[in-house]
Computed example of a mutant assay.
Amino acid sequence: MTGSADLPRVVVAVPPDLRAQFFAPEEWARLASGADLTVLDAHTDRGALARALPGARALITSWGTPRLEGEILDAADALELVAHTGSAVAPYVGEDVFRRGIAVTQAGDAMAGPVAEVALAFTLALLHRVHRFDHALRTGADWETASAAPPRHEIRGSRIGVIGASRTGRAYASLVRALGAEVAVTDPYLGAEEARALGVRAVPLPELLAASRVVAVHAPATAETRHLIGAPQLALMPDGAGLVNTARSWLVDEDALAAELASGRLDAAIDVFDAEPLPVGHPFRTLPNVLLTPHQAAGTVECRLRLGAFAVTEVLRALRGEPPLHPVGPEALARLH
């Protein structure tokens, strides 16, 4: 799985299962036509990565690739680019990478669409209580009992709150607006003029929580956003409201949410958890008012192929001396995961 030794060398630290999902045959051929490839099946092996890096001009990373620091970074004597196939780069690079002038790219733009679609699907399910009906029928409730649920609502005319005007937050806002929702967004960096251009209202977090039928979390995981939604914030949400989290569990106090959901006052749809895999005995698993998926919001076939295509394009541009299309700087290290 290597190209010509006359070509610049590129290390691909992506395991076989993900390589098959990320790189369509034509994309892999495009990469191999421009680079001598060193492929690491054992992509989490620090020693293997350090041995592969000398002389390599680019590195493609995936989830689990060791962080470029210490002896690994010292071995990267010719490295010009780290192309990450995910969004958050902090687990894979540190300030020393940027100080050495190594470019870093990420593929977050490829993920925004499918994650926003899942958040929309969650929103519709919560509004129509689909998860409650499904749980009741699957657990043996009689027809009349299974038909009982809190009031249901259409998305048209519903007030939907978005926490975070991120790429995914904006994509989600666009989708729910297209279906007729009234959208409010809270984000310290979103001004009134930009909010108007997006067709949303910029409001403080307490107002958003108190006025929304569904609140969707799309903020980044930074030191400042740790448990942004805790017991006091959940208490502001009206009875019967729903919380959607396809971002990071970091943003929501999971214990506080579990306690609120156990009361039955709120509903939730959750893709991300403090402990993954989600423990079999976790209270979320038995609650009828919770819809769960196993951290798969960005796991579409199309999205994963885009992740690989983004990385291939960035690598080939770097080898030609062209600037990256999706670069990040040291400020990206503030996003913890």
Rank of each mutant, 00 (worst) to 15 (best):
A148T: 11
R156L: 06
R304Q: 14
R19P: 09
S33R: 13
M237I: 12
L316I: 05
M237S: 11
A269L: 00
P114C: 04
A141S: 12
A195L: 04
F22P: 07
L124K: 00
R51M: 07
N245I: 04
A13I: 05
T286W: 10
V214F: 04
D109V: 15
A58Y: 05
V97F: 07
G157E: 02
V12C: 11
A210I: 02
G329P: 10
V185S: 01
S87F: 09
A149S: 15
A29W: 03
R99V: 11
L79H: 12
T105D: 00
E144M: 07
A241K: 01
D45C: 02
R213M: 03
P294A: 04
A241R: 02
G64D: 03
R100S: 12
R226E: 10
R320C: 09
L120Y: 13
H43I: 02
E26L: 03
E276N: 03
S212H: 04
Q21F: 11
Y92Q: 08
A42W: 06
A52K: 06
A141T: 04
V290Y: 00
A29M: 07
A119C: 03
V315F: 02
H135M: 01
T313S: 14
H326P: 08
A149T: 14
L319G: 14
A268D: 01
E302C: 11
S87L: 06
V12K: 07
A221G: 10
R335G: 13
A52F: 13
I155D: 03
F133C: 00
R170F: 10
V14D: 05
R46G: 07
H282Y: 04
V82C: 08
E193S: 15
T300Q: 09
G161P: 01
A259W: 12
V10H: 12
R167K: 14
P150Y: 02
L209E: 00
C303M: 08
Q296I: 15
D96R: 06
R285W: 07
P324Q: 07
A107G: 05
F284T: 03
E27D: 14
T123H: 11
A219L: 05
F22L: 14
L198S: 00
I102V: 15
V176I: 01
D271H: 13
T246R: 00
L179W: 01
P150N: 01
F23I: 13
G86S: 12
V280Q: 12
A110E: 07
L336Q: 10
A20K: 14
T38L: 11
R248N: 13
L18W: 15
T44H: 11
L336P: 08
L53F: 10
E260D: 08
V82E: 03
R265G: 10
E276R: 05
P25L: 00
L37V: 01
V215M: 06
L243V: 04
A309W: 13
G3S: 08
A178P: 14
L49P: 04
D253H: 04
A52L: 07
V217S: 05
V118C: 09
